[in-house]
Amino acid sequence: MDELDKLKGAWKNQDYSKHKVSTNDIYKMLHMKSSSYVKWIFYISIIELGLGFLISSISYFTDSHKDSMELFKELGVYSYYIVAIVISTTVVLYFIYKFYQMFKRIEVSDSVKNLMKTILKTRKIVKQYIYFNLGFAFILIEVTLSFGMIQSYLKIAIDKGEINPVIPLKAYIIGGVLTILIGLIIIGIFWGIYQLLYGILLRRLNKNYKELKQLDK
């Protein structure tokens, strides 16, 4: 019998009666608010999932939205815009449904490893949603910037007196590189902030899950 085995008996006989919480206090505790991490994950995820919806809903009522719609119609790309809106709404609804399904699976009476896995999977859904939105935003930035640059170039050329201005290849290349760079910087900043928040939120959970997974190899 080793040293720790000998301590088992004493471990079991620890007297906690001096520190016993009264049944009255236990009753009070039952009605207190939990400060659970899962609750925070739920709130943060709802904010993340709802933010996309909120921004697009607000922008729908702005004047610039009406202007953009008219411009899209003029350019003959309005139907593409509608398709993009339908796709993005379907994707958002899909993510909300997946999130809800996964969140319901979080059970505090699950095994330690499974609970961690379910929480991480739930967060992964929100993370995928954020990446989808960043990707969508990147495309939107690229299209808007390219369109803006081409329009500005042509306007300047017409103001200078050119009748049928043609954009030289060099200007296309410089413009293309610039729009990609600007798009990458904007998305990069958002991605960095998100990674930081995500890292802080899940640091302990990720560390513990990694350790448990390592044990089961």
Partner: peptide, 21 residues
């Protein structure tokens, strides 16, 4: 199970407290 899951994964330190013995 519940106690360990709470301590390892669920618990967020808070300042909320009630007076116990």
């Amino acid at each position: 199970r519940v106690a360990l899951n709470t301590a390892i994964t669920i618990y967020r330190k808070s300042k909320r407290q009630i007076k116990t013995s």
